[in-house]
Nucleic acid binder design. Structure first.
Length: 525
RNA sequence: GGCCCUAUCGUCUAGUGGUUCAGGACGUCUGCUUCUCAGGCAGGAAACACCGGUUCAAAUCCGGUUGGGGCCGCCA
């Protein structure tokens, strides 16, 4: 049956939309809904529209819209029509479309399909409480449903507070959800719903119906939390004589406690993920697999391969728990795929932000070649004032590439390269049961061996060929355990119990600093 | 409480009546590589919620139970 639905989709006809409300930062749930809309539109060679639902003037803020747009751009979810890209269907902010809504509200009132309601909010709230306590479905009593025209006119003239309600017919409403199949509702249980505060202030359910029609949206793909809204919207479409879009309700993204993911779970905004060092590729890949999969065992997908393979038929019906561990894995995977140049470029801001290094602006070539992205070649190490070249930073990043799960981790992993003095406990230098004397002996041995290596031969390979055979001899138990020499070396150079290879580190640190750190280590004993 | 959605390893999932004592991924555990960590490689543990029914045959179809979730705003 689902396949039937797709037969009628001709390329170019599909139009999906994302309709965020700028009342908060864009979170993962909204981003996933946008992604699925985008994927479905692109898969079918259609258009993806971005509409800003700012009918709630009180809560809508320009900075939130900015955050939402920025988030989509960063993720690579591009819209064909939207707030800053004009299309055929008028402004894309609901606050700029009030004339359109007004026309339809007046039409509904003229046809007596909507009416003015003068009940106070307190009155309504009391009613709701009472109905809930009686185990009834809370719904409007219909008190103002049949007010005679004269009374309405009089109240309106008096300026009595009012809102506009849609007359919900008592009938069964059903629709075919592209993911869930046939869904049926009894509208008789709903009560007349409020569609606008006044002629110029429509509410969500109504504005969305009008816009989806006016903007020729063919498929409404949204979260499962909208299922109860759908029959209401269908009833309004019928009253307005609109054609109906197809609907697909996506499974919810859940927190670890299996309830809808929200701020309560510390749900981070999309841009917060960026700040923490997640890659957009990882987030996209991860979000796509929250409720969707290609049906086989492939799990690594780029945006373009998702576009090729996406289908609503493969979308899951039940909610999916947001598993950060899997995101971390994917992020590490994509970090390992990066070229070292690109990865360094991505890590640099974290090092700078932390104050470890700062760019040498005067060294920058200016103006940069046309079209070339300006990359600063020279940096200054904050603590020592030394110069460090991009090339060296790339080496540092390269030896930590496979250890990085998030870009931000570059700081804690490599800070020792940029520190004047390392702070660590002397016990850290101890391999197995080594005594202070033995550690000192190892350090002396290192000093002697390394001093003999000429600066021009100071590279990883040479260091290994000199140190490795010696390291095996240092094991008092003659088990060729290299740790007796190499562990104190690594700790002396890094001050950490986990790091990259000491040979690679020594190469980057260069002879002078390497020997200096060994000397510093000896002072601790 | 009412209406609605939903149910395979801890998590994301494959599976559309038989070739499945259920496959993959993350996580976890073991081993190898090794000075540590990471990575890589090899391997292990780990699931069809329950009860009925249909059928020669059910994770797969039907009914019920139970569990989980969503919605019940002059928010979206």
């Amino acid at each position: 049956m689902l396949a039937e639905e797709f037969k009628f989709i001709k390329p170019g006809e599909v139009r999906t939309r994302m309709a965020p409300s700028p009342t908060g930062l864009l979170h993962i749930g909204g981003a996933r809904a946008a992604l699925f809309n985008y994927l479905f539109a692109k898969k079918n060679e259609g258009s993806f529209v971005l509409r800003i639902e700012d009918t709630d003037l009180e809560r809508s803020l320009p900075e939130f819209e900015k955050n939402i747009l920025e988030s989509f751009k960063w993720l690579g979810i591009e819209w064909d029509e939207g707030p800053d890209i004009e299309g055929k269907y008028g402004p894309y902010r609901q606050s700029q479309r009030t004339d359109i809504y007004k026309k339809y509200i007046e039409k509904l009132i003229a046809e007596d399909k909507a009416y003015y309601c003068f009940c106070s909010q307190q009155e309504l709230e009391a009613q709701r409480q009472y109905q809930m306590s009686q185990g009834l479905a809370p719904r409007y009593s219909g008190k103002c449903a049949n007010l005679d025209k004269e009374t309405v006119k009089k109240y309106l003239a008096e300026g009595k507070a009012t809102i506009i309600r849609f007359r919900v017919p008592a009938k069964k409403v059903s629709f075919d959800d592209l993911i869930r199949g046939k869904l049926e509702f009894d509208a008789g249980l709903m009560g007349d719903i409020i569609i606008a505060k006044d002629l110029k202030s429509p509410l969500y359910n109504f504005a969305a119906v009008v816009d989806d029609f006016e903007m020729k949206i063919s498929h409404v793909i949204r979260g499962e939390e909208h299922i109860p809204n759908t029959p209401k919207q269908i009833l309004m479409q019928e009253a307005l004589g609109f054609s109906k879009p197809s609907y697909a309700h996506l499974p919810l993204i859940l927190g670890p406690d299996k309830t809808k993911l929200s701020k309560r779970h510390g749900a981070t905004s999309v841009l917060e993920f960026k700040k923490q060092g997640y890659l957009p590729e990882a987030i996209i890949n991860f979000m796509a697999f929250l409720g969707w999969n290609p049906g086989d065992e492939r799990e690594i997908y780029s945006m373009s391969s998702l576009v090729k393979e996406f289908s609503l038929e493969k979308v899951q019906k039940s909610g999916a728990v947001f598993n950060i561990k899997k995101l971390d894995f994917l992020n590490g995977f994509y970090i390992r795929q990066k070229s070292i140049e690109k990865l360094t470029e991505l890590c640099l801001p974290y090092l700078i932000e932390e104050g470890l290094i700062s760019p040498f602006f005067k060294e920058v070539q200016y103006p940069p070649a046309y079209g070339a992205k300006e990359i600063i070649q020279k940096y200054k190490i904050s603590e020592t004032g030394e110069e460090i070249y991009l090339e060296t930073i790339q080496k540092i990043v390269s030896i930590y590439q496979e250890r990085l799960k998030k870009l931000s981790e570059i700081v804690e992993l490599t800070d020792f390269f940029f520190k004047e003095k390392l702070v660590y406990n002397k016990d850290l230098l101890k391999w197995k049961e080594m005594s202070d004397k033995e550690i000192k002996n190892s350090l002396d041995r290192l000093k002697k061996l390394l001093s003999k290596i000429k600066i021009e031969n100071w590279n990883k390979e040479n260091l290994e060929s000199v140190l490795l055979p010696e390291a095996e001899k240092m094991d008092p138990a003659a088990q060729k355990d290299r740790g007796y020499l190499l562990w104190p070396l690594r700790v002396a150079l890094t001050g950490k119990q986990a790091s990259a290879s000491p040979f690679e580190i020594a190469e980057i640190l260069a002879k002078e600093k390497t020997l200096k750190r060994i000397k510093e280590a000896k002072k601790l004993l």
